Computed example of a mutant assay.
Amino acid sequence: MLLLGIESSCDETGVALVHAERDGVPRLLGAALHSQVAMHRDYGGVVPELASRDHIRRLLPLLREALAQAGVALHEVQAVAYTRGPGLAGALLVGAGLATALACALGVPALGVHHLEGHLLSPFLSADPPAFPFVALLVSGGHTQLMRVDGVGRYALLGETIDDAAGEAFDKSAKLLGLGYPGGPALARLAEQGDAAAFALPRPLMHSGDLDFSFAGLKTAVLTQVRRLGAELEARKADLAAATQAAIVDVLVHKALAALRATGLKRLVVAGGVGANRRLRAQLDEACARHGWRVHYPEPALCTDNGAMIALAAAMRWQAGGWPPQGEGLAFDVRPRWPLEEVALPVAAGG
């Protein structure tokens, strides 16, 4: 099965081709990606209308690039997968429209994929793919969740953020520090030059006894420190960045380990843009090695939004015997808000 994947949920346009057999891990053949970071930088954040228009400009050139890289022709594609949600409605419609038009022209299924399921399964394209079951820490820009994953479409929510996500905490704190857009990576880079112990910042809900997260209070604490420092902020900026990153990472690591203990599982998957953070990876690697647990990540290029994870999710759904909820029709809708639990596959009797 040759699947084409299209991602257009926010500010990255991705197209990829994945080949899958009924058994075995699907194989990435080619991928092309464009980031809109430079376009949105002047506005300090994503402008939805501009994002949608840019997806229109980029998708067909990226499609040609991915096909050339994979060494296949468009008529060989056997299914077209696209991000149905969650995301920006206008941006999602661009990808869904192109995917459905291509599927109609080729006479193949058009498959709506859940964006977070793509992130969740993306480590299966890495050099060290995981095996089911595992605990997943999903840390993308607007989501922070812990899931128990027993198989494709078999997800149980263990905990999630009750306000800001970890990615939002990075970005909002970076804005308070006067760093550029995107703020999260800028804060992480600056943190490497600072002393994480220089400021005592809170670790919200770290010892709450549950697996939920909260990062809004941390943002408020960073704002308080910025105001206290005043003219001294420039000289102490790296230290405050390091302390902020340490607070976010400490909470993520503590909760992820607590989820492993609570479930009795010994395998952790970390996915989403924040999963590329080097401090987070280093602390999780060290902690899991200490307990004899395994931790898996996507390849760095697959941490951000991309078409490969969308094609992969559709391929693994096909292997599991069930396409995504969109089915095989050519009428489409998008789901800007879409709980991951709604894409569960039916469990066979005795399964």
Rank of each mutant, 00 (worst) to 15 (best):
Y43D: 08
G351V: 07
M309E: 05
A38P: 00
P182C: 11
A103V: 03
A136N: 10
A200P: 10
A348Q: 11
H115L: 02
A221C: 03
A191K: 08
H40M: 14
D333K: 14
R261F: 15
L62V: 05
S35M: 07
D150K: 15
A105E: 07
L205D: 01
D171E: 14
G167N: 05
N277W: 09
T13A: 06
G292T: 03
R64V: 03
W318N: 01
E76F: 01
L268H: 04
M316Y: 01
P48I: 07
L205C: 01
G112T: 04
L3K: 04
A197F: 05
K237Y: 11
L340D: 05
G142F: 07
A96P: 04
G5F: 07
A344T: 06
A259R: 00
A165H: 12
S173A: 08
M206Q: 13
A246M: 01
H114E: 03
S140T: 08
C303I: 08
P339M: 02
R64C: 00
A313Q: 08
G142T: 09
A136Q: 07
E65A: 13
F213V: 12
R58P: 00
A276P: 08
L33S: 04
L102V: 02
G230K: 12
R22H: 11
D23N: 15
R227F: 10
G5W: 09
D333N: 13
R281W: 03
F124N: 13
A349L: 11
D164F: 06
A221M: 03
D333Q: 14
P204D: 04
G97E: 05
D164E: 12
L67A: 04
D171L: 10
G5D: 11
V295H: 09
Q225K: 13
L146E: 15
G71K: 03
L98S: 06
M309H: 02
L280G: 02
A188W: 04
A191E: 12
N306S: 04
V139K: 13
R27P: 00
A186N: 12
H34A: 10
A246H: 13
V274A: 15
V113R: 01
A314P: 06
V18N: 14
L211K: 06
A259Q: 02
P185C: 11
A241K: 09
L218W: 10
G217W: 05
A238F: 12
G45P: 07
K237I: 11
V295F: 09
G5C: 04
G178C: 07
